[in-house]
Design a protein around this nucleic acid. Structure first.
Lengths: 334, 334
DNA sequence: TTGTACGCGTTATCAG
DNA sequence: CTGATAACGCGTACAA
């Protein structure tokens, strides 16, 4: 930049004005500066700019990649966020969560990113406190147990589970099962799992339905393996809610092998998955689609609004996903 | 840092020495500095450090998220890369490819990242030239048509296709089909598709086998839809290679509905997918697993080696994935 | 072993 | 409209 200034016969300040058009510059000198820039193949240095201006226009989407699979759904959060950021003149990068918690502070208070969007939030999430302590502009995708004072957007799992149950209830089902993931320390207090489980039990109780829980590994083999448990221990169950899409396809196909037909003998609803994954099963599963891309977008808009100061009040919003009927719903047999 | 120095009664240089232990410091003063640091809750500023040292120890994994789905396999590249980076004292972030190509130069010549790992490489990939021109340290996951002079690691699609064909041939199959994705401009010259297609045709010709190609949308619905084409136009085909896992599951289940059984009537091999996706189909598909995590790791190791100057020669390496038998292979019928 | 002083490439604040 | 110049926070010769 110094060189550009020299070649154009102006001061560095003027060059800076041209580069950012932060101040009016006469057409003549602007031209001289611009040609000098191409001449010297000038590229502004983002680091220096960040040091001087105290911002990078970069947002980190913090994702604990070692604890949570970067699923299809998670990928859509990222895509939605990336699109929105691009429109707003920001860049969002997917930042694997540092294993060392100290590294988190470094990242966040180091000035490399202007703000952080936190994913895979737990009810008691230490990361939130750490980030707040570091005064990092923060938006959650998900929410803690007590999210007061925090900007967040989240899937409305409660609403989705209620809708699913009511749909099944409306078809005549009275004996439901929720298929959950095996408990792992990693998942302890993980929002979606906790909220879906609690809502399931509460709504079943409210409606006078039987609501039981089954657990299996979060993959097709796990789903296959749990089929016998289901048939042996809960033969009266006629409908099922599944949070883990991978397990669902395995379960459905294994049931098929055992002569149990979906939806004739068992209705199945997927919670918070994608169309494509629901279509992968045979038959296509009913699914409450995760509004992932939309939430990614909203997360970025919220954080940017906070950064630019254009967002006044707190933003706390829950979003339901679309209900796709698929071919896995029917009245209970008999 | 200035404040820390003042509180500890030393100069900023000494504080810097302590922070980076770049010079010997007497235990006494070190202690004073350290306690001053905790007292003031000191956090070093990554941006300033980057400006002074000309490196950030951050690597960008450049992924064109708008053109390519961030699939399960792609996610594993990221995970593998993140692990390796962490071990080497680096951080790798997933950087969505800027839609504006000029923005790519900004990113790369701005000093925000020390180097770039390029994903979803095409045979003629402009990004490579742009990055080289900007003198950005660069490693490819994938490779261009002529990758001479470039560090790269890639899936050995040629070897994998050959292995798959030979396996099928060994079972007695002589009439093969390759299921490809519909042509899209986005995918024009995309390495995996081109190489798999070319190798398929070449190896079939060499072995005297019939090798034909079918195309469908890269999702379950696409696979379902292409089932009738297969049955009507290629009824003699007894085995199939599939590059798109999503389509494969749809095809297999639709064939089942039409009385065509895998593997009795048709053998199926998935190329470059994951165990879990292969297990999702019914029956479990044979699969040549993509060595994604390993390649992610190797990509990082290569780039870091280049950055640290510990890597001498060029690194150009192809990796095969494991062959899992699944339950979708059998001799041809009759 | 420690301190001084300069450089890193911009932005921002003045004054002109 | 333009130019000097002081930050920005840290690394690192070089000197002490």
């Amino acid at each position: 930049m110094r060189d550009v200034a020299r070649l154009a016969g102006v001061s560095v300040a003027t060059v800076s004005f041209v580069v950012n058009d932060s101040k009016p510059v006469s057409p003549a000198t602007r031209l001289r500066v611009e040609s000098a820039m191409v001449e010297l193949d000038f590229r502004r240095n983002a680091v220096a700019r960040a040091l001087a201006s105290r911002r990078t226009r970069i947002i980190a989407l913090l994702f604990p990649v070692l604890q949570h699979r970067l699923s299809d759904t998670a990928a859509r959060f990222f895509t939605g966020a990336a699109e929105a950021a691009s429109e707003l003149g920001y860049t969002v990068v997917l930042w694997p969560e540092p294993s060392d918690p100290g590294a988190l502070r470094e990242l966040t208070s180091g000035g490399l990113v202007d703000g952080v969007i936190l994913m895979e939030v737990r009810l008691d999430d230490r990361r939130v406190d750490q980030l707040l302590e570091a005064h990092t502009p923060l938006t959650l995708i998900g929410r803690t147990r007590d999210p007061s004072g925090l900007d967040y957007v989240d899937v409305d799992f409660e609403g989705m589970v209620e809708q699913a149950i009511d749909r099944l209830h409306g078809l005549g089902h009275r004996d439901l099962v929720l298929l959950e993931e095996l408990e792992r320390e990693d998942l302890d207090g993980y929002g979606p799992v906790v909220r879906v489980g609690e809502t399931f039990r509460a709504v079943c109780a409210e409606r006078g339905l039987t609501g039981r829980t089954l657990r299996c590994d979060a993959n097709p083999a796990g789903g296959r393996a749990v089929a016998s448990t289901l048939l042996e221990e809960m033969p009266e169950a006629t409908a099922m809610l599944v949070l883990n899409d991978r397990a669902a396809t395995g379960l459905v196909s294994e049931l098929g092998h055992r002569g149990i037909s979906v939806p004739r003998d068992l209705s199945v609803v997927l919670i918070g998955s994608t169309i494509e994954v629901a279509e992968t099963a045979d038959p296509e599963l009913a699914v409450l689609v995760s509004p992932a891309a939309q939430l990614g977008r909203m997360g970025v808009e919220t954080l940017v609004g906070r950064l630019d100061g254009t967002l006044g009040e707190l933003r706390q919003e829950l979003v339901m996903g679309a209900f796709l009927e698929g071919a896995s719903l029917a009245p209970p047999p008999g």
